[in-house]
Design a protein around this nucleic acid. Structure first.
Lengths: 242, 242
DNA sequence: TGAATATACCTGTCTATACAAGCTCTGAGC
DNA sequence: GCTCAGAGCTTGTATAGACAGGTATATTCA
């Protein structure tokens, strides 16, 4: 039997170094712009190896807390102009994670002549005459939460029309058939077109949060989707902690 | 004279290892869920030390490309349910970065009795009778881009009314007087109240992108701000590359 | 005085080595 | 056939030592 209860999950040393520095920032001992200890000083102060200090500081730099200049020193980052992160999640995963029921209703799933705006958005070659188009409503416990209006490059996902979108979202399906290389999101607010508003059961003049998502696969742009969400029932939330 | 031009900025080894693995993922050689080489295998394959491989893989894990299980192996992450990042920026910094002119018009800067919703949002003690309130319009080249309606905890920033908000945004001022501990953002779409719509020069029934920002300082919640942006002229944009 | 040089310190990278701890499979013993 | 120990893999962490290259300051020399 030991004379002291052993720590069940002892913090790794590099994490202790991070906390040590963070604590000095949180307490105001080190203010934004101020110089923090050099690696060598932290080595002497905390009796750990320089590689351990280096890892700790490097991770704090990557998370935006510190910034370093080779040959000069390490400084508390000035978050004043820094951005704060927000996450755009897969709607089905998000609903399920809230412990709610997700289901999707397929309104449209078809091959259509390429609309000119879509030809631009997907940078389609002139030879491409048709694209796939799907219009799907996603529900959280039978309340409509997203209308997904998507155009898909047939060169990337030739079997798109055969997919089972009751059990997998188009986004998930596309990631499966063509590994994703790049995703771009644009978030706006707008009054939705009338048919979209009806699908979302919006009140007249109720605003919608619109996300435009463009995805790239290895070879080409894979799809362009416009996601409409009811302004009163949907929000994006992000927390940034130092 | 050398027989070959020396690489002006040779990539560090750990970056080469990252690219090596990324290349295999991008090419489809390693698909989501698949196992990638163990550290030891990469060591033999690329003739670098294990610590270098470890750093490369650790960074790819942190950026969401790989995932690892101790004792089992390293796998290509399944981004299908993963979130994609978006940044909320300081409005003044964003405008200036676009090369445009930013200026702010102070509509209101006053001490007011605590509204009940604000008492909740800032978790103010019952003894607090008054808070600071500012209403500021931010312009990009003389076009209104944001109405910032902010309530400030006087315990955190007692001199808020004396600040010069023509040259510094309230957010920047608060970060200066009370180091930031936590920021929460909620993004919604809504029709703005009539006076806000007028300040933004919105057309009737034009939607607004609304960001609610709550900030925490060391000791207490520092401020609660509602930021209204014109739906037609403002958007959040984020790109995720693998 | 002014310019070139030395030096001291800083971050950045890389290696070889070590040990701990998690997981899986295999084979010994029952 | 079943259980359990251990081998052999994996990742995770930590160290000491080394060298490169950036930056500021002091020093030396003209």
């Amino acid at each position: 039997m030991r004379n002291a209860t052993p720590d069940p999950t002892p913090l790794p040393l590099y994490a202790k170094v991070k906390n040590h520095v963070l604590q000095q920032i949180r307490s105001g001992e080190h203010r934004p712009g101020a110089r923090v200890q050099s690696e060598h000083e932290l080595v002497r102060e905390l009796r750990v190896s320089r590689m351990t200090v280096n890892r700790a500081v490097r991770e704090l730099v990557r998370s935006g807390v510190l910034s370093r200049i080779a040959g000069v020193g390490t400084f508390v980052a000035d978050f004043r102009a820094a951005g704060h992160p927000l996450q755009i999640r897969n709607i089905a995963a998000e609903i399920r994670e809230r412990g709610h029921r997700h289901h999707a209703r397929i309104v449209t799933l078809e091959k259509v002549a390429v609309p000119t705006t879509i030809r631009e958005r997907l940078a389609l070659p002139a030879a491409t005459r048709q694209v796939f188009h799907s219009l799907i409503v996603h529900f959280e416990n039978d309340v409509p939460l997203q209308v997904e209006d998507r155009y898909v490059n047939p060169a990337v996902a030739p079997d798109y029309l055969q997919a089972d979108f009751a059990s997998i979202t188009p986004h998930e399906y596309l990631m499966e058939v063509a590994p994703l290389r790049r995703v771009e999101h644009v978030v706006r607010a707008a009054l939705p077109p009338l048919p979209i508003g009806r699908l979302l059961k919006l009140k007249p003049h109720e605003a919608a949060l619109v996300i435009e998502r463009t995805t790239w696969s290895k070879s080409a742009r894979a799809s362009f989707a416009t996601l409409h969400h009811p302004g009163g029932r949907f929000e994006l939330r992000g927390v940034f902690d130092i």
